[in-house]
Amino acid sequence: MVERVICYRAPSTVAAVDEIADWLRARIDADVTVRDRFLDVHRTDDLAERFAEVRVPSPYERDTGNTMLGTIRYEERALEHPEREGGVLYDGVRIQRALNAALPAEERGLETLHLAILDRAIGTWGEHDGRWHKRVNVLGQPALLSVPGLYEAPAKPEAYYKEQQRHALLSGDTPPREVLENQVDGEFLVEDDPRTTDALKGYALQAYHFLETGEPFCDREVCRLFNAHYHEDLIDAQLREPEFCGEHARLYE
């Protein structure tokens, strides 16, 4: 039984974590509190090295990590100045293990859910297709919520990728993301999107729901607990009425 949820701020992002906490507080039977950035509150001496060990070098290589001194120095700087970090993908499951080890022993039990909202891109390895997939969240203890993942993990409308290919054929390089976002009609979230906080609320609830019930996701696309693989589905699930399917409305409305 989850008795309390601790949400951690992500100050280098537009995610308003206090607002997410208020939304959770109104829907779950647990004490919800907010702390500063997880990577500051639970900083350990080896955290930069742990991040370096789980960097993903290639979308198609299972092995991770680069513990050369320059990489560790980069990770140290990213911990101190998160606004400068970007463009690196990390193994979400191993990051979760590292952050779990950083928790104080008395807070590691499953009656306390730590909800680490991160400014890092995280992924999991797909055994079925032999490649890394970006994720919005990794459920468990602590639960990880990736703000960059919200923008990057779900697939965008088909027109986005067609425009990307067209530009590459004409110019020989990949266009800047902002160019594509301005040229392609369709609904998808972009970096620093004003809808970020509202969209993350459902992902925060997924973390609580998993620890409380053991059920990872809902298979109904009209529910906040749905695990969307496309931006259109994410917007339907997180930003449109109804908030929940009938079954989960009884629990959380």
Results as ranks from 00 to 15, higher is better:
Ala105Glu: 14
Val147Gly: 02
Tyr160Gly: 07
Thr197Tyr: 05
Glu243Gln: 10
Tyr161Asp: 09
Leu234Met: 10
Leu180Thr: 11
Asp192Lys: 03
Ser12Ile: 00
Gln183Asp: 11
Gly214Asn: 09
Ala249Cys: 02
His81Gln: 11
Cys245Gly: 01
His209Tyr: 14
Asp236Trp: 01
Leu145His: 05
Gly87Phe: 07
Val56Ser: 12
Val93Gln: 09
Asp31Lys: 06
Pro59Gln: 02
Val136Ala: 06
Asp91Ser: 06
Trp132Gln: 03
Cys245Lys: 01
Pro59Val: 03
Ala199Asp: 05
Glu215Trp: 03
Val93Ser: 06
Tyr252Glu: 07
Pro154Tyr: 10
Val222Tyr: 01
Ala116Ile: 07
Asp192Tyr: 02
Lys156Met: 12
Lys134Asp: 04
Val56Ile: 15
Asp119His: 14
Leu99Gly: 08
Phe244Pro: 04
Arg84Glu: 15
Leu225Gly: 13
Ala116Cys: 12
Asp185Val: 08
Ala153Ile: 04
His133Ile: 00
Leu150Arg: 05
Cys223Val: 01
Arg195Ser: 13
Gly186Ala: 12
Ala105His: 01
Gln206Cys: 10
Gly214Ala: 07
Pro142Met: 10
Tyr203His: 14
Arg195Thr: 01
Ile122Ser: 09
Arg43Phe: 09
Arg177Ile: 13
Val41Thr: 14
Asp198Phe: 00
Thr213Ser: 15
Asn227Gln: 13
Glu241Cys: 00
Arg135Lys: 14
Met68Gly: 14
Ala26His: 05
His167Phe: 15
Ile72His: 10
Cys223Leu: 02
Pro216Asp: 13
Gly65Val: 10
Arg84Cys: 04
Arg120Leu: 14
Ala207Met: 11
Phe210Asp: 12
Arg25Val: 03
Gly130Asp: 10
Ala105Trp: 00
Gln183Val: 08
Asp233Asn: 12
Phe38Asn: 11
Arg94Lys: 14
Ser146Tyr: 10
Ala159Gly: 09
Val136Trp: 04
Pro148His: 03
Asp193Glu: 07
Met68Val: 06
Arg220Asp: 15
Ala26Cys: 04
Gly126Glu: 03
Glu3Arg: 11
Asp91Pro: 04
Gln206Tyr: 04
Phe51Cys: 09
Glu243Asn: 06
Glu111Asp: 15
Glu75Gly: 02
Leu24Val: 11
Glu127Val: 07
Asp63Lys: 12
Glu241Thr: 04
Gly186Cys: 14
Phe188Val: 05
Ala199Lys: 03
Asp63Val: 08
Leu239Gln: 02
Lys162Val: 09
Tyr74Cys: 05
Phe244Cys: 05
Asp129Trp: 03
Phe38Leu: 13
Pro57Ala: 13
Ala101Gly: 03
Arg224Asn: 02
Val32Lys: 04
Ala105Gly: 01
Gly126Arg: 03
Glu49His: 14
Gly214Cys: 07
Asp22Val: 08
Val17Trp: 06
Leu150Met: 08
Gly186Trp: 13
Gly130Ala: 11
Val41Tyr: 03
Asp119Tyr: 07
Val88Gln: 13
Leu89Ala: 08
Phe38Pro: 11
Glu158Pro: 00
Leu150Asp: 08
Ala52Glu: 09
